[in-house]
């Protein structure tokens, strides 16, 4: 935790300040995150703390900085200001507690590796420098593949898998990392219906095990069915909280502005609500 000089404490009457609450309740707290590409702000002073043990969707229009938010919060891209704390510790020391699933397009799928090779990579952190994966590690990796229904494809070259299967492999790799916190960048992008269902199952299982999961999500129709919480972004923090109280046409209007018709908004916020 950051040591504060006494005068600062006078300013700490805001309940959102992560320092004022027990760090154990905040698996992932971001404070004042600002990111700019070519001197154009993409994210503007976003503060957010992910609810522990919940499945949260990050939603917002295109260019709202959803993926940027994940990457900058993890320190993977440079930021102008802001900081991230994981259970009160600076992000750099806590990266091993976090499994990050990048967008599928972020890697070269023509790489000479099989599905199980990729899942094993999730275990490299535990294996440590210089050592080679053991038989036990292979078994763990195979179990992770099993939990996403991919055990039959373990030895398939990753380039020969379908988009949905590749996404499942990525998910299995994240499972192998056995982290406290899961950050996923559009895992549902371009996957088939069966894969979508399988991914949702896995996400629910993670939450049931007490993990905290943050997912960049695109499809507003399914938000109510899949998630318990949301974070609405549009360059700035618009709103966050439980789906019932936050996924409102008012907030959506704020985030999406003129991009969603009002009838659409009403339909969404009432879909399966209350």
């Amino acid at each position: 935790m950051q040591k504060l000089k006494t005068p600062d404490l006078q300013l700490l009457h805001d309940t959102n300040a992560p320092e004022s609450i027990n760090a154990q309740d905040h698996p992932f707290a971001v404070q004042g995150l600002t990111v700019a590409y070519h001197h154009k702000p993409v994210l503007w002073g976003v503060s957010y703390s992910a609810p522990k043990g919940c499945l949260t969707a990050i939603i917002g229009p295109n260019g709202a900085g959803k993926s940027t938010f994940l990457k900058a919060a993890l320190g993977l891209i440079p930021k102008l200001s802001g900081e991230t704390k994981v259970f009160g510790a600076p992000i750099k020391k806590a990266l091993k507690n976090i499994a990050y699933v990048p967008q599928r397009s972020a890697v070269d799928w023509d790489f000479p590796a099989t599905a199980i090779d990729v899942v094993l990579m999730g275990l490299y952190g535990q294996i440590g420098w210089f050592r080679w994966p053991s038989r036990k590690h292979r078994e763990t990796a195979l179990n992770c593949l099993k939990s996403v229904g991919m055990q039959d494809f373990a030895n398939r070259q990753i380039g020969q898998l379908s988009g949905g299967q590749q996404q499942r492999v990525f998910l299995a790799r994240a499972l192998a990392q056995d982290a406290e916190m899961y950050l996923m960048d559009e895992p549902f992008a371009g996957v088939d219906a069966a894969t979508e269902k399988a991914i949702v199952m896995v996400l629910r299982k993670l939450v049931a095990d007490g993990k905290t999961v943050l997912v960049v999500h695109h499809d507003l129709e399914t938000v109510r069915d899949y998630y318990s919480h949301i974070l609405l972004l549009n360059g700035q923090h618009i709103a966050d909280g439980p789906v019932e109280t936050t996924f409102t046409s008012e907030n959506l209007q704020k985030a999406y502005g003129g991009r969603l018709a009002s009838t659409q908004l009403d339909g969404l916020s009432q879909a399966s609500g209350a």
Partner: peptide, 22 residues
């Protein structure tokens, strides 16, 4: 650019009664 951003965010924090930590 960095000054502008930090100044503005600092002032916004003051306006919202939030602590300025950075």
């Amino acid at each position: 650019f960095q000054r502008i951003v930090h100044l503005r965010q600092g002032l916004l924090a003051i306006a919202h009664n939030e602590p300025v930590l950075e």
